[in-house]
Design a protein around this nucleic acid. Structure first.
Lengths: 352, 352
DNA sequence: CTGAAAGCGCTTACAG
DNA sequence: CTGAAAGCGCTTACAG
């Protein structure tokens, strides 16, 4: 029977409430509440009876009522500039798996640009959702959202390697991609390349002079007293890697290139192929991330394996601890990504 | 001041409510409700005053209270077996963009397997969210969720090409991938290949004998009186395409292969490379979807362009119409995917 | 261990 | 055009 003044959707019967369960079990709705919340002080027999009725009637607690009455919602929302690029998609998957295991709902909220209005809107939407927030701050839009998130909101962020030791209260999670970039560059230098060029993902303004991957690359070059070429700005996608990579491919001086991610590397490989330059005989290429396609390209891509899936899990785990236990969340570095050498890197050609 | 019995999170001040706005504006909270809901019968001066206070106080309606009182929630949840594979990720992106434009929140709910328990759990979680539901039924888990979704739930599904004309009330959206597969196969046959092998994505039980892509492939072969080889079961990923593709690569009889998606094609290309078979000189390969990397492989992949982004938008649009307008949603086919010929297909080698 | 009361922040008819 | 009342389905102290 539809409740007066509260029309439901067509055909949607009013679902069973805590009161229906209470009546059927012969207890107060209050006791039902205790049972579904795992409150310890309920007589076992009572609990059993209530649970039986819950199962029989197919009762499900109203998320809205629970949220309104308790001020809590078992949910997290992932705020990100993009959901499809490999790293972000894998991170999202990690969050979802961990959230599912903890019976948390997951929402996504994309921040389209770094415009103040877009950032504010995204933050408003994310806050409206009412749960915890995981922000992917790998790019400018995400970083701005992180910086402008209201205090008091339960929040954890996936970030680049911090440029300096972060404040103890920074709820940040990262893998040491700066160090990984340095090692990748050293690998190339060790192969006899005079220098290494860098095909860049977009950098955030916080890190003046490029992303932390760029910083690690520069560091290795400087330490080895190698020339530091101007980074070539690309983007995130194969198309952008190709477009920017053509310049590199046309320059006979480049013999080794570190790419900001594997999709960029894919585009560069194509540009090199079109230019008639062989990999790794003429040019060595290193990617970043170890996306699913990296191992199956021809030549198979030497790249740095990053466990975004784990980053996602950890972000959720820490947020969960913050929400349920009030455990303060500080900065947290995961294991350093590891260089996986495959076919796209080789010794520098002897000087002609 | 914390309300007795309703502790908020640490440091989270009680946010401004409709009553605070009402007091500040000198009206009843009821009138504020009318203003935020765009009710027409409000005096312009009153409306202006209320809106000014709303802006000044930074009022945001409580999602939970709104949902509880109205029985509606401006949200959709995407139910899918996977969020990272290209087609699904692009579809999700389309949904998110359309939802954002309509001020709807979007949740994701993954159904891990086709086990009855997993399907039921996913459906429960999706239903708890309270809004509309978009199910991606490209695989068995998704399909079962679709079949078992409770009646009365606002729902739209992205499906494979239906095997037969669907019932008028089926809220399905698809692109004609069966026909696209047929055309791709005909393209290969037209190049002089005796037959075309099929490297298969997983099929759903509903479509006995393989997915609709397989059906289209078989159709073309049959019409041309070509032999119909056994499809080679692979999966969705490059790794699976590679593993299954090795068998194809080792068989000198295969000169043309249609792949269920571009990732499979990528793996196959690698297997062919390792086996020393040239593409397209020795073997022609066609992918499916036109994922971002397809055009940048070497050889660039001939593939069938599918607009999953648009599928996502359309799914949301129809669901939105259903929720807000009660517009009934029937089956809906989008434009047929188009074959994009690039470098991975060529004339059959003349018989040795 | 269990129940009666009050309240979360909104919306919905119903009056006026 | 606007307000007073009731209710959405829960949870939270407070009694007992």
């Amino acid at each position: 029977m539809p409740v007066a003044g509260h029309p439901r959707g067509p055909g949607a019967p009013r679902s069973v409430s805590i009161r229906d369960v209470a009546n059927a079990a012969g207890v107060s709705h209050q006791t039902v509440s205790r049972v579904i919340n795992g409150h310890p002080r309920v007589r076992p027999a009572t609990r059993a009876r209530v649970e039986a009725v819950i199962a029989e009637l197919g009762f499900r607690r109203s998320v809205a009522a629970h949220a309104l009455a308790s001020g809590r919602t078992r949910s997290v929302t992932v705020l990100t500039a993009n959901t499809t690029h490999y790293g972000r998609a894998a991170l999202l998957r990690g969050v979802e798996e961990a959230a599912r295991a903890a019976s948390y709902a997951v929402g996504i909220c994309v921040v389209e640009s770094e415009e103040p209005r877009a950032v504010r809107d995204a933050l408003d939407r994310a806050t409206d959702a009412g749960g915890g927030l995981i922000v992917i701050a790998y790019d400018e839009p995400g970083l701005r959202a992180l910086e402008q998130a209201p205090a008091g909101l339960p929040l954890v962020a996936a970030v680049e390697t911090p440029a300096a030791a972060p404040p103890a209260a920074s709820p940040w999670v990262w893998t040491d991609d700066r160090r990984a970039a340095r090692e990748a560059t050293e690998h190339l230098l060790g192969l006899g390349h005079r220098t290494v060029h860098y095909l860049a993902i977009p950098s955030t303004t916080r890190s003046r002079g490029g992303s932390q991957r760029a910083a690690g690359w520069r560091e290795a070059l400087t330490r080895a007293s190698a020339a530091v070429p101007e980074p070539v700005a690309a983007g995130w996608t194969p198309a952008e890697g190709y477009a920017a990579g053509r310049r590199l491919a046309a320059d006979p001086g480049v013999t080794a290139v570190l790419c900001g991610n594997d999709d960029l590397a894919l585009g560069l490989l194509r540009a090199l192929h079109e230019a008639g330059r062989r990999v790794p005989e003429d040019v060595s290429v290193v990617g970043f991330d170890d996306a699913p396609h990296a191992a199956y390209l021809a030549p198979a891509l030497t790249t740095v394996r990053q466990d975004f899936h784990e980053v996602g899990r950890v972000c959720f785990g820490r947020l969960h601890g913050l929400i349920e236990g009030g455990a303060p969340v500080g900065p947290h570095a995961l294991a350093t990504p590891r260089l996986t050498v495959r076919e796209s890197t080789g010794p520098a050609a002897p000087p002609a």
